[in-house]
Amino acid sequence: MKKGVMRPGHVQIRVLDMDEAVKHYKDLLGLIEMDRDDQGRVYLKGWTEVDKFSVVLREADEPGMDFMGFKCLNEDVLGQLRSELIERGCEVEDIPAGELRDCGRRVRFIAPTGHAFELYATKKQTGKWGVGNHNPEAWPRGLEGIKATRFDHCLLYGPNLDETLDLFRDVLGFDLAEQVIAPDGKRVAQFLTVSTKAHDIAFIHHEEPGKFHHASFFLETWQDVLKAADLLSMTDTSIDIGPTRHGLTHGQTIYFFDPSGNRNEVFAGGDYHYPDHEPVTWDAEELGKAIFYHDRVLNERFLTVLT
């Protein structure tokens, strides 16, 4: 049941070297630099995104994800969800408006997987970059590199998938769209949606809490994915795997790493989900095909290389 959480709104990613990171996310991935703050954080977004930013880079001496934020319908919904999180036993931290530039107050909590999530309802809207919303052209000129259209989802690794699903479903209104079930019946991967997308957030079971697998960005077509692969080779960027297709969600994809070792994905296509749909289930024995539909075998790096 929908609870007023709308969509993934932002992710803050730690990078070892800001100049290298900005070059990667801006010049190669094609995000638009929107702002910087006095902490040295850099704010970016995909050109189709209406809100001011969706990716925040922070220089640190270990890479990984600081937090992922979901945007809620309005401040009333945010207040209600804050109360429900507390009733549920979650410890919430109130982050004041303006801590992220042009973003309203944020309610932060730690999921049972060990990851920090935030809810917020207010962020400055600068409109789709280069086209606006009045008689808009199809796309703006002047985009760089892979021309990523939007921040789409994250895949995170950690323990306690059942408790995390309960929290996201019961309190935040997410649905289980796809899952991987081990022979003993244990769910080892879960893809959750709060929209009609196949995933807005995904988790894979891992003993160590709070690990970051990837942040994903949406492209329109398979041809765009191939061109992304060309650009990754042209720039000698570290590729993990692809271009290929996933069994899970059926998206067409390529995985690569930013200069600090954080994994990125760009993908096109993929399945859709409505609240009356039963979850799609993959057996863990078919995991190779579930993750890489054509190779049908896993590379160890995909499962174990995390930040």
């Binding site: 070892l16 790493f257 200069p259 070792g261 954080n262 994994r263 790096r301 174990t304 995390l306 930040t307």
Partner: peptide, 11 residues
């Protein structure tokens, strides 16, 4: 072993 190639994963 080859991981991220970016100093991040420790592989």
């Amino acid at each position: 072993p080859v991981g991220c190639r970016g100093g991040g994963c420790g592989f």
